[in-house]
Amino acid sequence: MSTKASRSAARLMISPAVVLLLMWMIVPLVMTVYFSFLRYNLLSPGATPWAGWENYYWFITDPSFNDAIWNTLALVGGILVITVVGGIGFALLLDRPMFGTGVIRIMVIAPFFVMPTVSALVWKNMFFNPVNGIFGNIATSLGLQPIDFFAEIPLLSIIFIVSWMWLPFATLILLTALQSLDQEQLEAAEMDGASWSSRFWYIMLPHLARAITVVILIQTIFLLSVFAEILVTTNGGPGTATTNLTYLIYVSSLLQFDVGMGSAGGVFAIILANIVAIFLMRMIGKNLDA
């Protein structure tokens, strides 16, 4: 259905969104790339001379860069393993017949709606605090030495908190995918003599493959940018133990006011995210029959 009139109307109506997003993408991006080649610190006003690759050099050779990359990978990888494996488990469980499905489902997905600062602070104080936290209390009452989570296992603690927030997301998507599986396929497999484990391995898992990929890709995009949880719990510490790439860039640009260095880091983050994004976009594109 299209006439010349409706086509030109369509172009007119789509342009505000396109123009705004184009600006939102291009303007800061160009500025970031530009700044990354300048010697530009907000604390030393005046000239901002061309720096060439200097910022990149200093950013990469900074020992905290190395830590940040490893922390980022550990954070993303750890959370992905927990949420995907846990999500499959939860989805299989919630797909079974039970009483009060609705209530149980709501309890499982609720953490996703908790804002990052709240969940980080609640876990930090009410659970991980070695003196008054619940975990500390349990340890003490069992006669054990309570763990000081953010001092002894800081990165694991953050992985745990973020996983709690994203496990519902994975569960919800995998459950949706699981419910779209044709029951007759499973019954046919059962008639063919397949045990539960082979039905899971040969039918359910391949059916979920697509959804699992989507979960991994989307979460990766978001998890590369974990920030608030670190800011309110450890401030990247102790030392650089919980500094990820996002936090490191935040420190350079807004705490040390080094615009050039922060921008160079930003370019890194963009490249890293784009590698994941390419795969995600392909998956979504295949599914789009526009």
Binding site: T32, S253, L272, M281
Partner: peptide, 19 residues
């Protein structure tokens, strides 16, 4: 256009924090 719009969502916020 749809795919491009989506791609803007993939831009990590920290990449454009400074500007």
């Amino acid at each position: 256009i749809l795919m491009w719009m989506l791609s803007t969502k993939m831009l990590p916020p920290v990449g454009v924090l400074v500007p």
